[in-house]
Design a protein around this nucleic acid. Structure first.
Lengths: 229, 229
DNA sequence: GCTTGTGAAACGTTTCACAGCA
DNA sequence: TGCTGTGAAACGTTTCACAAGC
């Protein structure tokens, strides 16, 4: 199953949910692609990986496709998640409404800092920050399958190990570190600084590209004796 | 220039900076790869794209490689950045120390919500949240090249247009929407909900894989009449 | 011995082009 | 006409294998 196709599936779903709000009933692969700067063939190939959802001559029915993609991604149900690390980022994530809209419920929070334990964080009524030793029981008792890791780099691996031991099946890791887990556990790492770094690189590269293009055009113009403008 | 190689360059740098702290002087492609679950050949090919940094029989000198990669990524200097949207996520990003460590300075913040304007946010002394109409002047006067977009989906494109008009060269977009900008501007989108969705998919898939594996083994054992255990 | 850098082979992804269908 | 689904071609990335160097 092509990994890039799975990544794009989430993006298709995001756009389709938007179209649903605007009561758009059907959409062609070309239209959906143009929303994400993809070719029509790309969209069709991606969707065809998972079944035949389209209607020749018509396109894709938005509501139908939304249901299908949710079912493929496993977001046609709610997932319970917990948070470890109630620093600035952790608290922001607890308050983020985007997760709930997609069916993810953050229902517990943990930290090992005594000054943070027993505080209530997030939108009213808030979630109680519990000490780390309560984690295993919470996972078992409250049916929590996912964890959001928002702790400092230095303790990321240790906490990840605790999460795995507690029976967590997937970790969304915001710590700037690559963590290792057993094969039955999935990890997705989001390193915010890395994304800014990539942006810096792209800005530099874009700048150079444009300069080269301009220079090339000028030289070309010079060579054929065209107007330098 | 292979796009995946550039992505990994940031990860190499992150690991190398860690090794530098632990006074590790040299590292082989195999060792560096194992930190990130990559093959040694992958590491060598990636680095070779940008020059000859290695020393046969020795490996790569950590401090040298750090300098080289920073120079390639364009993070051998500081970048000034601004933030738009001082909601929960925006304020968390202003307080995040990881950016400063990588040479990114968040030096201005904007919002169009009157209740947020003129507040000070982030670590002491804090950054003053200014109204959107001050944005163009701030970009020009303070040499700001990057923007972090942490606004709701509904206004993401509008604000992006304002940023472009103000002369911003790169946007790190946290809004759950794909935004379009002219070719001379770079965008990186980080959709937090999408990452959780991908994690949900991987958890489901992993579960099925393991079940199939177990079933396969059992069947295999049955077929050859081995112990069913 | 161990290491890098690199052409060549293997693999995966995207694009093309068109048959089949409403 | 307009659309999907799909084999085939084109393109890009990763892995292999080994010469060259410490």
């Amino acid at each position: 199953m092509p990994e890039p196709a799975v990544r794009r599936l989430s993006l298709y779903l995001r756009e389709l949910e938007g179209l649903l709000d605007r009561q758009c009933e059907t959409i062609s692969s070309r239209q959906l692609g143009s929303l994400l700067n993809l070719t029509d063939a790309q969209v069709r190939k991606d969707l065809a990986c998972f079944g035949q959802f389209g209607h020749p001559g018509v396109g894709y029915r938005v509501s139908e496709l939304v249901v299908r993609i949710r079912s493929i991604l496993g977001t046609d149900r709610t997932w319970n998640a917990l948070l470890v690390g109630s620093g600035h980022l952790g608290r922001a994530l607890l308050s983020y409404r985007g997760f709930a809209r997609k069916g993810f419920r953050l229902i517990a929070a943990f930290d090992n800092d005594p000054t943070k334990i027993n505080q209530r964080v997030g939108a009213e009524p808030g979630i109680l920050v519990e000490p780390m030793d309560r984690l295993p029981e919470a996972v078992a008792r409250r049916g929590i399958e996912m964890a959001i890791l928002a702790v400092p780099q230095s303790v990321a691996q240790t906490v990840a190990d605790q999460l795995v031991a507690a029976g967590i099946k997937g970790i969304l890791n915001f710590a700037p570190a690559s963590i290792s887990v057993p094969a039955h556990v999935s990890v997705a790492t989001v390193d915010l600084a890395v994304h800014l770094e990539q942006l810096a690189f792209r800005i530099c590269t874009r700048q150079v590209e444009l300069e080269r293009q301009t220079a090339g055009k000028q030289q070309g113009a010079d060579a054929i004796g065209g107007p330098s403008r």
